[in-house]
Write a protein that binds this DNA or RNA. Structure first.
Length: 425
RNA sequence: GUGAGCGUAGCUCAAUUGGUCAGAGCACUGGACUGUGGCUCCAGUGGUUGGGGGUUCAAGUCCCCUCGCUCACCCCA
C-alpha cells in the first residue's frame, strides 16, 4: 500500500523551523500592542458568499482558487483564501461599529488557495493580517502602512521596496477605466493574448503585465492620478504627506493595481528583492465598499496582509537572526539503576523551577547519555549514581569547559536556576 | 490551467553505451573507553531506486501513465 503524504502544496513546519515562526509572532504581537491593535481568532472556513460577494465574483481568487465544499447539511462553505472579508464580517456581526472607531484588529493564521505551488507560494500559507475598520481618515492608511513597515524594520529586513498607488473609488475608477481602454484600444493588436483577454474584464491589470511589448505600450498610458475625483485625489495626497511626515520611504507606482475587487483609494505593496517571482511580502490598502458588498452598512476600512512564509524565506536569505532557538539547558544523567528514582525527582524539581531539563528514559549507558547531552547542546549535566545519592551530592559538569564539581543535592536546583537567570545557559 | 527540469536509505548524493549497482558520507544504535560528551576507529539498523504498466535474456538506467518536487507563466501574501 502506498504511504500517505501531505497533499500537494501544503507542508509541515517542523521544529527546526517553527521556532523561527514563534519569533516573528512575538515581534508582531508586541508591535500590535504598540499600535493599539487587538488580536482576534477567526474561523478558517466561512459561507462561500462572504468571499464571492466580498472579493468579487470575477476575480481569479473566487473564480478558480477557492477550496469550496458542501457540508453535510448542504451549505456551501469555503476555506478562507484571505482574512479581510472575515474580519469585516466579524466586525459587522458583533456590532463593533458601536465601539470606538476605528476598530483596530489583527490575526494570524493559514489561508488556503488552490494555486500551482512554486517558490514562496503554497496552497496553505500563513498571513499576518491587520485591519482598521470604521474610519475614512488618511491618517489611518498611514498608520496601517507604518505598522507593516515597523514589522519588517524590527525583524531586520532589508532590500525591500514599498510601492503605493490609488485605485480610486466607484465614482472615479470607471472614468479612468474608460480613459485607459480608450488609449489601449488603438494598440489592442499589439497587446499579449493575456492582456487582450483582460481588456474588457479588468483593463487595469494590463498595467502590471510583465511582457515587454505591453509595458512599452502602457508606459504612455494615462496616469490614474490624473483621473481621480477630488476626494480620492486629496485622500491620496494626505496619505503621501503622512508617510513623508513619519519618514517612510516609498515609491509611487502607477502600475500598481489590486486583484481583489474591494480595494478603493490606497493600494500598496511591499516587495522583497530576495525572493523569486512571488516577491510580495505584504499587500494591502483601503476597502471602503467591502462592508456594503457583504450586506452591512457603508463602513470604510483599511488594512494589510503579510505573508509569513515569504518573510521567513527572505529573512533566511538575508541571514537574519530569529533570536535564540529554545534548547535544553540541563541533562540529568543516571549512572546506575539505584539512582534512577532520585534522578527523576531532581529532573522534576528542575522543571518546576523553570530550568529546561531532560533525561534519558531508555536505559542508555552513561557515555551515550553524555553524548546525547552534547548533541542537545545542554549547558550542564547532573550526574547521579548510587555514590552521589548515598552522600547527598550531585556531580555537576559544565559542558563547555568540561569542569566538574560535586555540590550538595539540596542546592543544585537553586544554583542551576540562578545560572539560567544570569543567562549562562 | 500552461511550460520546462527533476524524483535512488531520515538528510546530501554515487552507480561508464540498459549487464552483481543497490553504494558512500552524514544522522541514528552499539562497541573500542564496563560512571563522563565534542576527536578517532570498528560494527549494526535502514531502500520492493515515488507508484503502476510496458520493451528486453536483463531497467535505477529506455517508453507510457500517474503522483509529487522545483522553477517560470498566471495570480498573489
Amino acid at each position: 500500500m502506498e504511504s500517505i503524504k501531505a497533499p500537494r502544496g501544503v507542508r509541515d513546519i517542523l521544529p527546526d523551523e517553527s521556532w523561527k515562526w514563534a519569533f516573528i509572532f512575538g515581534v508582531t504581537r508586541k508591535i500590535a500592542e504598540d499600535f493599539g491593535y487587538r488580536e482576534v481568532h477567526l474561523p478558517i472556513f466561512e459561507q462561500t458568499e462572504l468571499f464571492s460577494r466580498g472579493i468579487g465574483e470575477t476575480t481569479d481568487v473566487v473564480e478558480k482558487e477557492m477550496y469550496t465544499f458542501s457540508d453535510r447539511s448542504g451549505r456551501s462553505l469555503t476555506l478562507r483564501p484571505e482574512a479581510t472579508a472575515s474580519m469585516v464580517r466579524a466586525y459587522l456581526e458583533h456590532g463593533m461599529a458601536s465601539g470606538p472607531q476605528p476598530s483596530k484588529l489583527w490575526c494570524a493564521g493559514p489561508m488556503m488557495r488552490y494555486e500551482r505551488p512554486q517558490k514562496g507560494r503554497y496552497r496553505q500559507f500563513w498571513q499576518l493580517d491587520f485591519e482598521a475598520i470604521g474610519s475614512a481618515s488618511p491618517l489611518v492608511d498611514v498608520e496601517v502602512i507604518a505598522l507593516s513597515l515597523e514589522i519588517f524594520r524590527r525583524l531586520g529586513l532589508s532590500n525591500l521596496e514599498v510601492l503605493i498607488n490609488s485605485v480610486g473609488c466607484p465614482s472615479c475608477r470607471p472614468v479612468y477605466r474608460s480613459a485607459l481602454q480608450g488609449y489601449l484600444r488603438e494598440r489592442f493588436d499589439e497587446l499579449c493574448p493575456t492582456c487582450q483577454g483582460r481588456f474588457d474584464r479588468n483593463p487595469l491589470r494590463i498595467l502590471d503585465c510583465k511582457v515587454e511589448t505591453c509595458r512599452a505600450i502602457t508606459d504612455g498610458a494615462p496616469d490614474v492620478r490624473d483621473h481621480l475625483c477630488g476626494e480620492c485625489r486629496s485622500h491620496f495626497d494626505e496619505v503621501l504627506q503622512g508617510l513623508d511626515l513619519i519618514g517612510a520611504k516609498f515609491r509611487i507606482d502607477k502600475r500598481l493595481v489590486r486583484g481583489l475587487d474591494y480595494y478603493t483609494k490606497t493600494a500598496y505593496e511591499v516587495l522583497s528583492g530576495d525572493l523569486g517571482a512571488q516577491n510580495a511580502v505584504c499587500g494591502g490598502g483601503r476597502y471602503d465598499n467591502l462592508a456594503e458588498a457583504i450586506g452591512g452598512p457603508h463602513t470604510p476600512g483599511v488594512g494589510f496582509a503579510a505573508g509569513l512564509d515569504r518573510i521567513v524565506l527572505t529573512m533566511e536569505q538575508q541571514g537574519l537572526s530569529f533570536g535564540r532557538e529554545p534548547s535544553i539547558s540541563v541533562i540529568v544523567v543516571v549512572a546506575d539503576e539505584a539512582a534512577r528514582d532520585e534522578a527523576v525527582r531532581l529532573l522534576y524539581e528542575l522543571r518546576r523551577a523553570g530550568v529546561p531539563s531532560d533525561m534519558d528514559t531508555s536505559g542508555k549507558g552513561v557515555k551515550a547519555q553524555m553524548k546525547a547531552a552534547g548533541a542537545a547542546k545542554a549547558c550542564c549535566v547532573c550526574i547521579l549514581g548510587s555514590s552521589e545519592v548515598s552522600r547527598g551530592v550531585v556531580a555537576l559538569k559544565e559542558m563547555a569547559t568540561g569542569s566538574q564539581e560535586e555540590i550538595e543535592r539540596e542546592r543544585v536546583v537553586e544554583r542551576l536556576a540562578a545560572k539560567m537567570k544570569a543567562a549562562c545557559c
